[in-house]
Structure formats: C-alpha cells, structure tokens
C-alpha cells in the first residue's frame, strides 16, 4: 500500500500540470484524505500552511489546495522556507538529543560553537542561527539537521588533533545544511511519514506535524544521504574551512585516520552505514582537489584545541 501511494505521489510531483497530472492529483488527494481522516484523533488542530510554502508548486492549483497543506503541502510542493527548515531541524535535533545527550562540559561546547560559527560565516548563508553540540557517546560520527543544527560525537572529537581538523569536520556538516541535503531526502520520502506512521511523541515541545514528516524519532539520521551528497559535502566543506583561514588538510587528515581504523569497530558501524568508506571519500576529494589548493597556507592551531576532560 505504502509503495503504491509513493508511486502515486511521485507521479503527481513529476507531472508539470498537464491534464494527466491533474487526474493523478485527484486520485492521490482522495487517498490522502482517507489516510489523514483515519488519524484525525491523534493529530493536533490543523495549523495554516506556512507562508510561501507552495510557491514553487508545479501542479494545478486546485489540487494542491485541496490536499491538507498543513500536513503535506510544504513537503511535497515547492521549497522549504527558512522557518520550516529550522522547525524540521529542531525536531530532528530534539530527538537525536533524546537518544544521546550533550557532553556536560560548557567549555567544550562553547569552543565548538565558536569554531563552528566562524566556519559557517564563510558559507554566507544569511538569517541562519547555527547550533553546534558535542554528543556524549564514544561512537565516531557527526550529524547535521536542516536549519543549522550540527553535532559531532565525543568519540570523533577525541580523535582530532587540532582546530583545523575540527573545522574540517564541521565544514562538512555545514555543507550538508547549505546544500539542503536532508531536505532533498525528506522530499523523496515525506509522504510515508506524513501518513501518520510516526509514533506519537507526547513530549513537551515536540512538533507532531514535523514528526510525521520525518518518521520515527531521529531515524532520518540513520538512513543517511546518497553518496554523492557526502562527496559534495567533503568538497564544499574543505573550502569553507580553508576560507576560514584553517589548514585545508584538516578534513582529509580525519578521513585518513578513519580509513586506518579497524572496520569492525562498533564505534564506526553507523558511520559506515550512512557514509561512503573514507578511502572512497579521499579518492573522490583527491580528484576534485588535485593541485587546486596547493598554494593555500592555513593554520592548524593545535595549541588552542580544547582538550576534552
């Protein structure tokens, strides 16, 4: 059933407003309303669709307006507004932090926020409030959520040797946000979540509408992006770090370190599930960089690197 609906949704979104698209739209709309009515009791009152959410819709206006836009509209049609991005990122982050809390070290958290914000400034993304957090787990990984939420684990932080390596890791994650990689994934899969599959979270501050969009908990973080998105984040991320004045070889050095880790290490199982192997990332980055960054002299700043307790 899910698959069939997915196919319908995709057909709807692929057609650019010709008669056939309209028919598919009608069909989809009926099915959606059926599904949504089933869940009515558990849904919060419908909020008006966020401004600008349907601006880029290509299907006939009559169709998209009848579909409950508060539930689905901004996911299926058009682009997300900055407010929507932030709302999605906030919900994903709140869930991720439910799985693993922040390290209780204010000095560390502040340091990572300062480095992160300086690198993020080079991305030139206006009106974004960037949040950086170190997660209290020995797992080796880093995460980004839409709107400017960035996390790395204590396990990864421990492996870093200087500020330039931290800047490289954060640059990769910042690139996921600026390139809107997770939003592209959401657009592909949003219908599944929107049909009320998500376990209802009664927690204070939880946004059920966004939760429906992102599925259960923070599982979107376990699904990962496609490998081209990861290669792109490597390419864009090292440039952000270089523009911030750091040694450009920070991220490559971290990838080297990870490539040498025993692959059966439990601490990297999620990383390897959601990312290409570090060796493939090095090779792809090598093709893109070649000699282009040879003349750039950046700082490593090993002395200022915050030592974790």
């Amino acid at each position: 059933m899910k698959t069939r609906l997915m196919v319908l949704a995709i057909s709807l979104a692929s057609f650019s407003g010709v008669a056939m698209g309209f028919d598919f739209g009608k069909l989809l709309e009926d099915r959606l309303n059926q599904e949504l009515n089933k869940d009515k009791k558990t849904q919060p009152a419908t909020t008006p669709p966020p401004a600008g959410s349907q601006s880029a819709a290509a299907s006939p206006p009559a169709t998209k307006q009848k579909v409950d836009a508060g539930q689905l509209g901004f996911a299926l049609f058009g682009d997300y507004s900055p407010e929507e991005e932030n709302r999605i990122g906030k919900q994903i982050s709140g869930n991720l932090l439910g799985a693993v809390p922040l390290v209780r070290d204010d000095g560390l958290q502040r340091y990572v926020n300062l480095v992160g914000n300086w690198v993020a400034l080079q991305a030139g993304r206006k009106n974004t409030t960037w949040h950086f957090g170190v997660l209290d787990t020995e797992d080796i990984n880093a995460f980004a959520a839409p709107g400017g939420y960035i996390f790395l684990t204590k396990g990864l932080y421990r492996r870093l040797n200087n500020e330039a390596e931290l800047a490289g890791v954060l640059g990769h994650e910042i690139a996921h946000v600026t390139q809107r990689h997770h939003l592209k994934v959401l657009k592909k899969s949003s219908l599944i979540g929107a049909l009320g599959q998500a376990a209802s979270s009664k927690a204070q501050g939880s946004d059920q509408m966004v939760q429906n969009l992102i599925g259960n908990g923070a599982e979107i973080m376990a699904r990962g992006l496609d490998k081209d998105a990861e290669f792109e984040a490597d390419r864009v991320g090292i440039v952000f770090a270089a523009r911030a004045g750091y040694d450009v070889w920070g991220l490559p050095t971290v990838l080297q370190d990870m490539a040498a880790l025993p692959a059966k290490d439990n601490r990297t199982s999620l990383l390897y599930k959601t990312h290409p192997h570090p060796a493939d990332r090095l090779a792809a980055l090598g093709e893109a960089v070649d000699g282009r960054l040879d003349g750039i002299q950046g700082k490593e700043l090993a002395n200022r690197f915050y030592k974790i307790r």
Partner: peptide, 20 residues
C-alpha cells in the same frame, strides 16, 4: 555505538535542546 534502533526509538528531549 549508536545504532538505528537507538535513533528510531529516540524521544524528543526538550531539556537537552534548550541546553544546546
């Protein structure tokens, strides 16, 4: 390490988000 199930079962933590 962190796994799929941890993330899937994760419950929204408003306190940690506020701290962040």
């Amino acid at each position: 390490g962190l796994n799929d199930e941890d993330l899937k079962q994760a419950k929204f933590n408003a306190g940690e988000l506020a701290r962040l």
